[in-house]
Design a protein around this nucleic acid. Structure first.
Lengths: 170, 170
DNA sequence: CTGAAATTTCAGAAAATAGTGAAAGTTGAT
DNA sequence: ATCAACTTTCACTATTTTCTGAAATTTCAG
């Protein structure tokens, strides 16, 4: 692995571990993303110096996140993996998977708590807070879903506009 | 602690641990946020059934994230903590602190790697990928900064507009 | 100052998470 | 059907992270 690639892989391993993703899985994904060609499990194990079984588990996780695509090269029985070529697609996938796993269940819990009737003034206050958070999260996820309907071109135009939208909004 | 509050606190503990924040710190913050009145360390230790020293470390962490405000109640030597009353403010703080700790250092690493000269075609490919990611992250953080200039009113108007912006953009 | 009240520190214990190697399971070419 | 190539599983070990209690430190009323 070239020093350039290694630095990146290392850094993403660290970052991953700050996010509930484990270091090795982070490194594996960084390596796959930077790879020109599809990557197989043995290559990952060799380059990252981890056991073959660890790689197998990591790949399973990346697949469950829809972050890699499995493919085969003719005349080779190994499984090969690539990341989407479009970095936007990777970002969207990450956002959507996180929403599915974390935001949606949280909204459900909050909705349930808002249905209960408060047994005390402090419950009442708590529900008020939960309501505010619920509205906020709801609004953000709804927005994120809508934005994903747009083409990358439109999205980047909007992002570049930035605070400029306020003018459009009057 | 009422069942309602306990459910919320439990859930946020779990969520926290999926995000590089530890379970107890997550629970502590949930408890503080739902509290009508300022909370002191002994109360947290008692309610969450963790050691006083663990609470002390957790509070230090919450303070380093700017998520709590320290205050004193007259005639009491204990330190009391509250969360901002505005949930938008909490969200912004989270975004900004995460940017400072995770995104900014990542951009720095990437920028450095883009300066190096590639020693092989695969380095060249890797740099291309890094460049794409750099642009994307840069655009998103720039946007996030700009949006924060707007008033909560304007922000929520924009978010509600959702994909509707595309019309404005022509 | 003094000392009680409070907070912080920190070394070690406990718990949780990640990683390994050996064995089992799959797959597909012959 | 066989068997070599490849992948997965899983019980166990290693590592990392979190938590605790005791001791040290800080703070402030008297």
């Amino acid at each position: 692995m070239s020093p350039l690639i290694e630095s990146f892989v290392r850094h993403f391993g660290e970052m991953g571990s700050r996010w509930g993703i484990n270091r090795t899985v982070g490194q594996m994904y960084a390596y796959i993303v930077l790879s020109d060609e599809p990557v197989n499990a043995d290559e990952l194990a060799a380059e990252l110096k981890v056991s073959r079984s660890n790689v197998s588990m990591g790949l399973k996780e990346l697949q469950s996140w829809n972050l890699v695509r499995l493919l085969h090269v003719p005349g080779d029985r190994k499984d090969y993996f690539t990341a989407p070529e479009d970095v936007w697609e990777i970002a969207m996938t990450l956002i959507n998977e996180r929403r599915k796993r974390e935001i949606d269940p949280t909204l459900t819990v909050m909705r349930d708590l808002l249905m209960e009737n408060p047994r005390s003034p402090s419950d009442q206050y708590a529900q008020g807070r939960i309501e505010e958070m619920y509205q906020l999260i709801e609004m953000l996820t709804h927005w994120s879903r809508e934005i994903q309907q747009l083409s990358p071109k439109q999205i980047s135009r909007m992002l570049k506009l930035g605070a400029g939208v306020s003018k459009l909004l009057g």
